[in-house]
Design a protein around this nucleic acid. Structure first.
Lengths: 119, 119
DNA sequence: CAGTATCCTGCCGGATACTG
DNA sequence: CAGTATCCGGCAGGATACTG
């Protein structure tokens, strides 16, 4: 294990097409049912929603509460441990906001200006 | 543009297989030549090194200094603006470090314990 | 309602060869 | 030395159908 840097670890946990949105919704709304999340994030599929939630659950960021009943009911929320990354998320959010402005200063606000393509 | 969250922006800039290592090397060593970076990151190909550096350059995180001479010499460094994300990187690093310990407490330190597979 | 199970595709990143 | 130019495989993520 490399000794010089653990910030890739933080990255790994946040990376995933839908993790940011999911986390933001849960941080904002508190507890949410599976279907509520689906409605809040219209373009996500059940498969992706499940998968990303499971990964967050594995990392103890998200808690999954199952109500044994029919029809099923499952609620998701940020764990107590998960709350601890609020400052980090806030820091990233602030930096991101500042960076958007910075890019605008550099390249102008013309929306046709694209960032460089990969490959 | 969504108003609720800009932290995906921060994520975008850091995401890329080699960006963390590249940034860390540049932050640690200051100015580095292309070949130095290559040697410092043995498994990276020229293509990827170039590509990731260009993306960071576009975002004004990395500066590219070209010396018009033969043989060519190009030096990379963190821009002044780029320095501003030091606290963020530090925060992510610290959080990541703490998180590794947290996972160990949850699942034990057994290296055979794997995180859940995707798909 | 809250998921799995399959199948499929785009594109990220690797390998290799060529160039000013 | 510091890159491009091509080609290619693997896998993250999408579409769709089925289930307790």
């Amino acid at each position: 294990m490399s000794t010089y840097c653990k910030f890739e670890t933080a990255l790994d946990i946040l990376v995933g097409k839908w993790k940011p949105v999911i986390l933001l919704r849960l941080f904002a709304n508190g507890t949410m049912r599976f279907s509520e999340l689906q409605r809040a994030i219209p373009d996500i599929t059940k498969k992706m929603l499940t998968q990303q939630l499971r990964e967050l659950e594995y990392h103890d960021i998200v808690h999954r509460e199952i109500y044994q009943q029919i029809p099923p009911k499952v609620e998701y929320s940020i764990t107590e441990y998960g709350q601890r990354m609020t400052p980090l998320l806030q820091a990233m959010n602030d930096w991101g906001e500042g960076h958007i402005e910075h890019l605008n200063e550099l390249y102008g606000e013309d929306p046709t200006t694209e960032s460089p393509e990969r490959s």
